[in-house]
C-alpha cells in the first residue's frame, strides 16, 4: 500500500505517556485495488493505447490458465474458444465475445489469475 517514502515516524506524548507512531501521507488519487492488481498484468501497449474498438477478455472467476488456444494476430470468430481456465476444479472455456483478431495474449500458460484479470485483447 502506497510507497514507503510517504511513511513518517513520530513520537507523541499523551497524558505523559510517550507513543511512537507511524503516519502515512495519503497521496491524492491513492491507488485502488483494481489499479494495483491490473497494472502489472497489463503493460502499456502502444497498439491499443486509447483505442475503444478493442475488447479485453477478463477472467470471470479466479483460477489457473490451463491452455491458450489462440496466438497474437490470429483471426477469431464470436464464440471461438480462446482460453481454458481451470477454476473450481472445472475446465472453464473462455470464448471470444466478438469476431476480430487477437491483439494481445496477456497471460501465460500456467499463470494464476484473479477475478477480472485481463486474459487477452480482441480487436
Amino acid at each position: 500500500m502506497g510507497g514507503s517514502e510517504t511513511v513518517r515516524r513520530f513520537r507523541i506524548r499523551v497524558d505523559g505517556q510517550v507513543f511512537e507512531v507511524e503516519a502515512e501521507e495519503i497521496l491524492e488519487q491513492a491507488p485502488n485495488d483494481a489499479v494495483e492488481r491490473d497494472a502489472p498484468s497489463l503493460p502499456a501497449n502502444p497498439a491499443i493505447e486509447g483505442r475503444d474498438d478493442v475488447l479485453t477478455v477478463v477472467a470471470p472467476l479466479p483460477g489457473t490458465v490451463l491452455e491458450i488456444r489462440v496466438s497474437q494476430g490470429q483471426p477469431v470468430v464470436t464464440g471461438q474458444l480462446l482460453v481454458i481456465l481451470e477454476a473450481m476444479k472445472m475446465e472453464n472455456e473462455i470464448t471470444s465475445p466478438r469476431a476480430g483478431h487477437i491483439v494481445q495474449v496477456v497471460v501465460d500458460k500456467g499463470q494464476a489469475v484473479a477475478f477480472g484479470d485481463p486474459l487477452l485483447i480482441v480487436g
Binding site: 470471470p60 472467476l61 477454476a87 473450481m88 476444479k89 472445472m90 472453464n92 472455456e93
Partner: peptide, 8 residues
C-alpha cells in the same frame, strides 16, 4: 450451467 462460471 457447467459451461458458465463452472456452474457455481
Amino acid at each position: 450451467q457447467p459451461k458458465v462460471l463452472a456452474g457455481t
